[in-house]
């Protein structure tokens, strides 16, 4: 059973090699790691050399490099230091602990998912309103666009403060910031998608005397599905950004954003980088999941 699974995995790996996806990705990764190790020495060296000179200590290049890779608060930590930190905070710490990155990731994930769901629903509802009611098209669309020109970093603290004053704290305010970012790509994509049926497809419905609701569910909605799924991929990544930004200004005690903030207070660069890596892995997984759902749905809808 396990050998079968291993064989399948090995087969998939070889298949990946053949299709030439893995090799370019791994090459780029290797290049990044090499550059990173170089940059870590270059960026950490001035402070180390300062220290050697203050203490009148003899040093050579070998000493410098090994010290550059083992500082407690480096300007740029070496990749293996981040891996060690991740190993400690992800695998070796129970997930219920405040020191566990999994715990913090979970806090951020729950508000970003809530924001994603709310934002997507809001975006869909707005789009449906805009394509059916002419005055909404005129009045709402400019505001929807304008909403996104406000820097989220500026408006997030305001949202948090206003909501806190009416007693809303914790998950909901962060989710609302995610919602604020999420609804935009969904609304814009869905307006385009719901308007994508061509005149003949609409005429056909007319010849059957189909009701507005029938035209919506049998034509506009399925025609807009590819647009919706593409928008959701953008929205899910944004929802995570929104949740993290929502954790920054509040002195939140939990979440990826709180970890980033605490790390920067105390100069814990390794902690910051670990949180960043976890955040980007999480974003990657979310986008991949939506992408997988997209492929599944579109295949069922008969796309080539």
């Amino acid at each position: 059973m396990t050998t079968d699974a291993a064989a399948v995995r090995a087969g998939a790996f070889r298949e990946g090699l053949r299709q030439g996806r893995l090799v370019p990705i791994l090459t780029v990764l290797a290049a990044i790691v090499v550059v990173w190790y170089g940059a870590a020495v270059y960026l950490n060296a001035p402070r180390l050399i300062d220290g050697y000179e203050r203490r009148d200590q003899a040093w050579d290049t070998g000493r410098l490099i090994s010290d550059a890779y083992s500082m407690r608060r480096p300007v740029l930590p070496a990749p293996h230091q981040i891996v060690v930190e991740l190993d400690k905070t992800v695998l070796d710490t129970p997930v219920t602990s405040r020191r566990s990155l999994v715990y913090h990731a979970g806090v951020t994930l729950s508000s970003s998912l809530l924001g994603f769901v709310l934002g997507s629903l809001l975006g869909i509802v707005l789009a449906v309103g805009i394509i059916h009611i002419h005055t909404l098209d005129r009045s709402l669309m400019p505001w929807i666009v304008a909403s996104q020109t406000v820097p989220i970093l500026a408006i997030a603290p305001m949202i948090i403060v206003v909501l806190a004053s009416i007693g809303l704290v914790g998950l909901i305010p962060k989710a609302i910031i995610s919602t604020y970012l999420c609804f935009f790509p969904v609304a814009v994509g869905m307006v385009k998608g719901l308007r994508s049926p061509d005149p003949l497809q609409l005429d056909l419905m007319e010849t059957y005397s189909a009701s507005k609701a029938q035209t919506f569910w049998m034509l506009r909605w399925p025609a807009s599905t590819p647009f919706l799924l593409a928008s959701l991929k953008v929205a899910v990544a944004l929802s995570l950004v929104g949740a993290i930004v929502g954790e920054l200004p509040t002195g939140a005690r939990a979440g990826i954003g709180a970890r980033l903030l605490a790390g920067s207070y105390y100069g814990q660069t390794i902690q910051i980088w670990s949180a960043l890596i976890v955040a980007s892995l999480m974003a990657g997984c979310l986008v991949w999941l939506v992408g997988a759902a997209e492929r599944q749905v579109l295949r069922r809808m008969g796309s080539r």
Binding site: Q201, L204, T207
Partner: peptide, 14 residues
Amino acid sequence: YGYVFQAPVLYPWR
């Protein structure tokens, strides 16, 4: 009446 257009106008997802 039943109407047949110049193009087949089949819905691609059906």
